[in-house]
Design a protein around this nucleic acid. Sequence first.
RNA 1: GCUGCUAUAGUGUAGUGGCCAAUCAUGUCGGCCUUUCACGCCGACGACUGGGGUUCGAAUCCCCAUAGCAGCACCA
Length: 486
Amino acid sequence: MITAMAEKHEKKTGLPHLEGSENGVVMRFAPNPSGPLHIGHARASALNDAYVKQCGGRYILRIEDTDPKRVDPEAYATVQEDIRWLGLGITEVVAQSERLPIYYDLCKQLIEKGGAYVCTCDNELFKELKDHKTACPCRDQPVAKSLELWQKMLDHGFKEGEASVRIRTDLNNPDPAMRDFPAFRILDTPPHPKVKAHVYPLMNFSVVADDHLLGVTHVIRGKDHIANTRRQRFIYDHFGWKVPVYRHYGRMGIEGVVLSTSQMRAGINAGTYTGWDDIHLGTLRALARRGIQPEAVKNAMIAIGIGDVDISFSWDNLYAENKKLVDPTANRYFFVPEPVEAKIEGAPAHTAHALLHPGDATRGSRTLEFTGSVLIPKAELVPGTAMLRLKDLFNVKIAWNGDTPSFSYGGASLADARAAKAHIVQWLPAQATVPCTLLTQEGIMSGACEPAVRSELGKVVQFERVAFVKIDAVGADGVRAYFTHK
RNA sequence: GCUGCUAUAGUGUAGUGGCCAAUCAUGUCGGCCUUUCACGCCGACGACUGGGGUUCGAAUCCCCAUAGCAGCACCA
């Protein structure tokens, strides 16, 4: 009794329980190979991944390439690269184009069972009949006739659009979407890049065949598949197979980035975007380029969960997840946007030491050699400002002649700076800087940074008082960094 | 039009008849700490779509309304 009460009010940790997951699960991620993965794919793949990790089991990557129009040969590799980046626990990989004979065989079986028939009606005519709950002439032809026509399909006896296989359902089903939906069609063009074929399964058929044959127990996918799930049940029933457990999550609106593969491709070809990792795109590689960690993406997706409500994706929440990961590890450096050179009168030469990380002195420090002139951010030089504290160095007094400042040594006392409410600002020795451009989604910020930043290529660092940034390129002309988040 | 799903703070989320004058995170604002406008800490703000029922009791169950979404492709 007491334990029951305790269980009832137990706090949930992680994802909700999936019915039938006690002895492990077999799940799958099934993208089209049409381009790199984006945030939308991240939700599907991360949720399935999390359940496999939570319950134990297998995780299948299934490339759904049964529509040659939507296959980009390069995507087979890019999808797998993206999955590796995300860190998914994929245990096996299959491509549907390699399994055509399996589908053909099952189709024949299904026709023999009377669960499907070959339809040679004009598409418009069929739609018309279907909308009026009327059977097309092919529906009642003998099984032998369907089998003969099926063989004719496979033997190239029909051209594109002349014949298809339909699943027998219930023409009186109130939902028109459920009535005798197609399972196979003929496609002559374009040729499939991976396999020579003429007859292709539609997803509802190949998905059922594969889910059954591969032993898939649980399916988590978007609610745009709810109707497909209902259609797929007809096929399961015809075969007498066990149906997996399904869960359909709601739509996720994502603002601020481009997600449509065709739009991205067009933009890249037109030169609007620099590539699939352009920071204006919603691809995983674009996130990676901006310094978003794969763990942050997964955590954000798991936090969103599998609710069936439509939601809007929050960049803030993603950034917060990322900051948790990056803040403890990112080294700190000075970056001076719009640098202004200031010659400081009366200041003694001094070697400044600044910690690489304020919370961990053992990580060491950078040394900045002051010999008379510094670069400071233009934004700090608001006329009337009397004092600034150069962080880890000393105070600077500013005298104003109209809008023209002149600088002099203001002592080393931090207490003085505090008393004067002086800003503590980042700076660079004028003789030891590297040009640095900081790219944000809004535009370019140019400035200068510490030479040591060049050793952080590929890493996320914090430009103090500015932002976390990803060091994207280091060259003779300086450093290029991408804005990650504040 | 037909079929179906959903509705908790700005955003995401917990909640399955009494623990809920509603959880956590994020966000915004204020404060503390601090040689970063970061991190950390403290505090504040902020929601059960509306209306009917059922019940001793409803965010939770039912009905209606409203709103949003999905599907009705020889795409996945």
